[in-house]
């Protein structure tokens, strides 16, 4: 049976377990030297945190929905996105399958 927390897609204990290594890697990006180490060799850096194959694929594909499904927490993933030069409108557009312009227009429309 699906719990309400699962139905709402919140980051709960199960997700925190699944995503632990991935989120720990993203937490490390608070330090500039770690961001540089990641960019220099993504796979080697990921190995230090024990990312699963699915997580490594999701990082390689820059696939936000897959990163979330593999236990990534959005607050930590935002640090990865920052390295990749993506802001939260870029992430929103990718996740909802629209252009960045269309995503921004939707936000503006909510305030109109």
């Amino acid at each position: 049976m699906t719990t309400r927390a699962e139905a709402l897609g919140v980051f709960d204990g199960a997700m925190a377990q699944r995503g632990y290594g991935l989120n720990k890697m993203c937490f490390s990006f608070n330090e500039a030297a770690n961001r540089e180490a990641f960019l220099a060799d993504e796979e080697a850096y990921e190995r230090r945190f024990g990312l699963t194959d699915a997580q490594r694929r999701a990082v390689a594909d820059r696939d936000v929905l897959a990163l979330l499904a593999e236990g990534g927490n959005i607050y930590y993933l935002a640090k990865l996105a920052g390295i990749l030069g993506l802001n939260v409108q870029d992430l929103g557009a990718q996740q909802t399958g629209v252009t960045v312009e269309a995503f921004k227009a939707k936000l503006l429309a909510a305030g109109a």
Partner: peptide, 12 residues
């Protein structure tokens, strides 16, 4: 809401 298919959700 930042993540998932509901990214961009606002409830005035």
């Amino acid at each position: 809401q930042l993540e998932g298919e509901r990214a961009g959700f606002i409830n005035r």
